[in-house]
Design a protein around this nucleic acid. Structure first.
Lengths: 354, 354
DNA sequence: CTGAAAGCGCTTACAG
DNA sequence: CTGAAAGCGCTTACAG
């Protein structure tokens, strides 16, 4: 029997009255807290479903210790990476009853600390995911630590020590790419560096150098090009490399955008890829499988990294009723400080035997 | 003189006491409401700055009519477009003291209505931005209308009528691309269609057909290929078109991904682009300027569209103090129902004269 | 296993 | 132009 038609959304009081229990018991059920008789729980859940009761975030947040909000801080530059981070974070958050708030800032903004402090104070997020280059931004990390806001650094460099981190093994991945090229018979292998302020670039070079050394191959300084992770840097590197007296037979660019620049330039100069020149990148960007030939590269499991980051921030199973988790709330977050996720070498058509 | 050191964040009461006014006056100042003596306002703002007082979103949301949250609903597919939407929305929101919550869903999820209903009930966002293909999802629109949640449709098709919409003029833009090709001397121009359930595809075809007709050029049915906005569809179209008895001299693909497929396939088959075949796309995706030759295409001002959508949702100038706006709150949102933003024909290297 | 009371930090609706 | 009171819808800290 429908009672008087409601105009506003049902509250916890409505559920409590209809179920014949107290507000507090409804709260226990909705939050999956223990200590509720099974029959009571069922009765409450029935009324919840009947009324389509949805706890209001702002009220929970104001009264309690959680906001059910996870912030993702990103720089507008690397759209593809950030989109994948958000995808992974948003999906995981939905599974556990959380929501993702995104904030775009320029990494070099002078007022970045104030901006972040403002956001954190207004939103009180339960955690923040820092994507590169923010994961190495000392100002931002400082604000978060001062305000006691939990955070996870994605693929950081120097800021990693002692802080919660999710990353892949860039060194090892770069070794694998280099080993692939060496196994294909290449010896004069060029490397295009990343920007100096981004540690992943250095790590990838480290892996490259280690593999070369392990195989007794010399590193010709002429074949090591500066770069900044942009397409034009790849173009410049290719011009430099291919105009030299002893051009390389393979180029390993430390990210896909630069590899794409190398690829386009080599083709423009009349070289066949991979016949005359093998090219490898790093990231498995969308464009990597759109260009011809498809680019050999390394795929990071970005979505998985984001999911892990969310889990590190909210702790185990802190979800809503019906969202899967039935475990003690308030479990300690950040249990493991470092999570390294497996990468994948993606061998496509831009690399071949000498 | 620092008083007793605080451990928790300052509240509106702290500001009121220190400023010697009531809570309500602080509230007025913070919300840029009229009716506060200038000297009082200044005094309050001084204390706000001193204490670094930041109103807490959850409390404002619970007590008041606004949540300061804008939701962006997106499908995981078109990452680049969505990233640009979020970029524009996030920047605009930050300017006016709002925040962006992102929710990723599959457009074909059977429980999409429940998912959206849940999110809206929990978050109480002040508005939702629907990106394609959600902007044409009747279930989602229905839920939002039933829950009286304001929304804006980005580039919708059949759902547009009578609802708040931001879009570009796809018909006209496609005409311009076609006119460009015709002006370059092309007459046998192929067109690669979009998926049947996405209206923008149909609109682009409409523009193509109109331009052809205006110039008295026939449309050969053999040169109109099916497509679904994916790279492989472009590959398939190219194989079909280039193996025919009278291949086209130009191909206009209704999005960049397909144009990229056409481009790569033509090159693979030994054709020079643009020498033997001109290729044009639509979107100005990142890859469009990464491939060689760079793709002639159409750029939509996606960030600008997102900013407009935010403004339509929050109404004019509803920002916080210090965030720029000093105007009446509660102005009617959605004043203009339809905003059409200017596009830009981007002529690059993939098109040339016959 | 369950509940009554207090309170989170704001805005609303009023009164002056 | 300013303020005192009530209340938004939950959780916390207790008590039983």
């Amino acid at each position: 029997m429908p009672s008087t038609p409601r105009t506003s959304a049902p509250t916890i009081v409505d559920v409590a009255e209809l179920a014949g229990v107290s507000m507090k018991t409804v709260s226990r059920v909705v939050n999956n807290e223990p200590g509720v008789r099974e029959s009571t729980r069922e009765q409450v859940l029935k009324v919840v479903a009947e009324l389509k009761y949805r706890p209001q975030l702002s009220a929970r947040s104001l009264a309690g210790a959680r906001s059910f909000l996870i912030g993702v801080l990103y720089y507008d530059f690397s759209a593809a990476f950030v989109a994948r981070v958000q995808e992974g974070a948003a999906r995981r958050c939905r599974e556990v009853g959380y929501h993702v708030v995104v904030e775009s800032h320029r990494n070099d903004a002078t007022d970045i600390a104030v901006q972040v402090e403002r956001m954190v104070a207004a939103l009180r997020p339960d955690g923040i995911i820092l994507t590169p280059p923010f994961s190495d931004n000392a100002k931002v990390v400082k604000v978060l630590e001062e305000t006691h806001t939990p955070f996870v650094l994605m693929s950081p460099g120097r800021m990693a020590k002692g802080r919660p981190v999710v990353r892949m093994d860039d060194v090892h991945a770069a070794e694998e790419v280099t080993n692939l090229l060496i196994s294909l018979g290449h010896e004069r292998i060029a490397f295009v560096l990343g920007p100096e302020d981004q540690v992943v670039g250095a790590q990838r070079y480290k892996g490259f150098a280690a593999a070369m050394k392990a195989h007794g191959l010399p590193i010709d300084p002429e074949l090591i090009c500066p770069g900044d992770f942009t397409y034009p840097a790849g173009v410049a590197a290719a011009h430099h490399l291919l105009s030299g007296r002893q051009p390389p037979t393979a180029v390993f660019a430390s990210n896909d955008d630069m590899a794409l620049g190398v690829l386009a330039t080599a083709q423009r100069l009349g070289l066949q890829v991979p016949g005359d020149l093998s090219v490898a990148g790093f990231d498995d960007s969308a464009a990597a499988s759109l260009v011809w030939p498809h680019l050999t590269t390394v795929r990071q499991p970005v979505e998985e990294m984001a999911r892990l980051a969310v889990d590190m921030l909210i702790g185990p199973q802190r979800g809503d009723a019906g969202a899967g988790g039935a475990a003690p709330a308030h479990a300690a977050p950040n249990q493991a400080l470092l999570r390294v996720v497996p990468h994948q070498l993606v061998v496509r058509d831009s690399t071949t035997a000498r």
